[in-house]
Amino acid sequence: MSIPILKLYNYLLISIQTEIDDKTAIQFQEDLLDKIHKTGATGVVIDLTSVDIIDSFIAKVLGDVITMSDLMGAKVVLTGIQPAVAMTLIDLGIHLQNVATALDLEQGLIKLYQELRV
C-alpha cells in the first residue's frame, strides 16, 4: 500500500489517510525523494489530519524524510497534526525541532510560499 503524492505547480502534496506501518513509511520515504528528484519540486506539504497514531519509528522516518528533502532543495511543512498525536510525540520526547508546521493545508501552503519567496 503506497501513499499517493500529488504535484501542484512547484509543490508536492501528500495527504496520509491510512495508518502507516513501518514498511509503508520506508516506501513513502523512497517515493517522495524520487518524486522530488523527478519534478524538481521546491516545496512539500505533508498533511497528517487523518493520522491518529504516530509511533517513534514513524516520527523518526518523518524527521529523516524532512532532512533528506531539505538536502535535495525542497522545503517540507507538516500540517494538521492532531492534539493527541502532538501530546504523544512530546511525551515520547520527539520534538521535531527543525520541522516547520502549520494548522492546515491552506496555511501550510502559505507558509511555504512565504519562505520560498524570501
Binding site: L78, G80, I81, P83, A86, I90, H95, G108
Partner: peptide, 12 residues
C-alpha cells in the same frame, strides 16, 4: 515548555 512544543507541532 512541553505544552508550547506540542502547540508548535500542531502548527501554531
Amino acid at each position: 515548555i512541553q505544552a508550547a512544543e506540542a502547540v508548535r507541532l500542531i502548527g501554531s
